[in-house]
Design a protein around this nucleic acid. Structure first.
Lengths: 156, 156
DNA sequence: TCCTGTTCGGTGACACGTCAACGAGTAGCA
DNA sequence: TGCTACTCGTTGACGTGTCACCGAACAGGA
């Protein structure tokens, strides 16, 4: 390695701004969701994934869709099941496997939570950005994500 | 409330892209930092804050600078102290207070970790973006952060 | 001096995420 | 059938983040 190249001023400013924005946005969306609907952002993601595909879902499929580690999902599902948000069914094809389904309570929770959450995202993010900025943001996210995934694949 | 306004297709795409990028970027930077230097992103932030102001820092000042909750910081400092990365000094002016300083070990850790971390940020993020995108990113972050902080102030 | 309200930082309980390891079950092949 | 290798999902240990609450110390006025 030929000595690190540091960030220039613009990059430094963009990076610090991004870090602050990212942390605060996530925290605020989480607080609002918790206050208005009693669920966390993680719960929300699981419930959305389950309700989008309205059929029993294998744990691994769910993990792939969410891009979560299987053990994180396993722990999280156990907690959600204890709170009555999801239910398990056993899987006839594969005795190791498990199916996860939304409970009545879980469906009620996601339907109650979604409008407020979407509204919060719109109010905190998209109401402040014009079309060109939204396009730019998507392009930046795609580019960075591609590099991260390439790096992840290389490093492992 | 007049019924929620949903996100349009571009917004939806930008939002999902951002969420995925954000999660993967953070995870990858954290993994690399942990692997190369044995510290977490949170440790890194604390160590940077302490090393930038090279003087004993009150816990509350540190919390303000990091935008962390005091109790999160208190727990984290306890763990970092146990690992020998920071030290506490008592505060003559205010017997309730505590000063936090980098230990020798902590200074060594941040100096060892920083170049690789900066390099990772550059490689995963800025090498893929041109100047216009970096500017756009900074502007978007500023705009969103301003809205989040306004919302946070209003809601409390 | 005393009382009241506030600030400082820490604590305990609990939810969450990661890692390594596990048992149970499956698949392929001799 | 028996062997090996692998996948499925879970578990336990541990580090982390949040919330409510606490005792100690400070600040200011009666």
């Amino acid at each position: 390695m030929a000595g690190p190249r540091w960030l220039d001023d613009h990059q430094q400013r963009a990076w610090r701004g991004y870090l602050a924005m990212q942390a605060q946005l996530q925290a605020q969306l989480g607080r609002r969701l918790q206050a208005e609907s009693g669920i966390s952002l993680a719960d929300f993601d699981v419930l959305v994934a389950l309700s989008e595909r309205d059929a029993p879902l294998r744990v691994q499929e769910l993990a792939d869709g969410l891009q979560w580690e299987k053990s994180r999902l396993s722990h999280h599902l156990a907690r959600m099941q204890k709170r009555g948000l999801v239910e398990r069914q056993d899987c006839p094809d594969d005795a190791r496997g498990a199916f996860i389904v939304l409970s009545i309570e879980g469906r009620r929770a996601i339907e109650q939570a979604a409008p407020g959450h979407v509204e919060a995202v719109r109010a905190l993010v998209f109401d402040g950005l014009d079309d060109r900025q939204v396009e730019a943001w998507a392009a930046i996210s795609d580019e960075v994500l591609a590099r991260v995934e390439q790096d992840r694949a290389k490093g492992s």
